[in-house]
Amino acid sequence: MKLYFSPPSPYSRKVRIAASLLGLDDRIELVITDTVNPQDAIRQKNPLGKIPTLERDDGVCVYDSAVIVAFLDDLAGGGLIPSERDARFAALTLEALADGLADASLLQVYENRMRAENERSASWVALQRGKVERALAALEAAPPAAVAAPAQADIGAVALASALGYLDLRFEGAWRAGHPRLAAWLDAFAAAVPAYAATKA
Score class of each variant (00 low, 15 high):
112 N>V: 07
155 I>P: 00
125 V>G: 04
158 V>L: 05
137 A>M: 15
32 I>C: 08
102 A>W: 10
179 H>E: 11
18 A>F: 02
6 S>Y: 02
101 L>T: 05
33 T>A: 00
22 L>D: 03
135 A>G: 07
46 N>E: 02
136 L>F: 12
25 D>P: 11
33 T>N: 00
37 N>V: 06
137 A>H: 15
104 A>L: 06
38 P>V: 14
20 S>K: 02
134 R>G: 01
91 A>F: 02
33 T>R: 00
146 A>K: 13
31 V>N: 03
97 L>W: 05
144 P>E: 07
161 A>V: 09
26 D>F: 03
138 A>T: 08
30 L>C: 06
74 D>P: 01
51 I>S: 03
90 A>P: 02
82 P>Y: 10
139 L>V: 09
163 A>L: 04
136 L>Q: 09
147 V>M: 04
132 V>Q: 01
127 L>W: 03
104 A>D: 12
45 K>M: 13
28 I>V: 15
188 A>K: 03
129 R>A: 12
190 A>C: 01
10 P>Y: 02
34 D>N: 15
85 R>C: 11
21 L>D: 02
142 A>Q: 14
88 R>V: 10
47 P>S: 06
156 G>K: 05
107 L>E: 09
82 P>I: 11
79 G>E: 12
53 T>D: 07
104 A>M: 11
196 Y>W: 04
111 E>H: 10
25 D>K: 14
37 N>F: 04
189 F>Q: 00
142 A>F: 03
33 T>E: 00
154 D>N: 14
91 A>P: 01
66 A>C: 08
165 G>K: 06
195 A>W: 03
16 R>I: 06
154 D>S: 11
171 F>P: 02
144 P>K: 07
92 L>T: 03
114 M>R: 14
46 N>F: 03
35 T>A: 05
198 A>I: 11
76 A>Q: 12
187 D>N: 10
75 L>Y: 08
118 N>K: 13
140 E>K: 11
196 Y>A: 00
173 G>P: 06
180 P>L: 05
3 L>K: 10
34 D>P: 12
128 Q>M: 10
44 Q>S: 15
28 I>K: 05
170 R>L: 12
160 L>V: 04
64 D>E: 15
120 R>K: 15
45 K>C: 07
38 P>L: 11
9 S>F: 00
14 K>R: 14
97 L>H: 09
61 C>G: 08
27 R>S: 13
33 T>S: 00
176 R>F: 05
13 R>Q: 10
184 A>I: 11
74 D>N: 09
47 P>I: 05
30 L>S: 04
36 V>K: 13
139 L>T: 02
2 K>T: 14
173 G>L: 10
68 I>R: 03
155 I>V: 15
136 L>D: 01
172 E>W: 08
19 A>K: 01
22 L>I: 11
67 V>S: 02
78 G>D: 13
29 E>Q: 13
94 L>Q: 12
89 F>S: 12
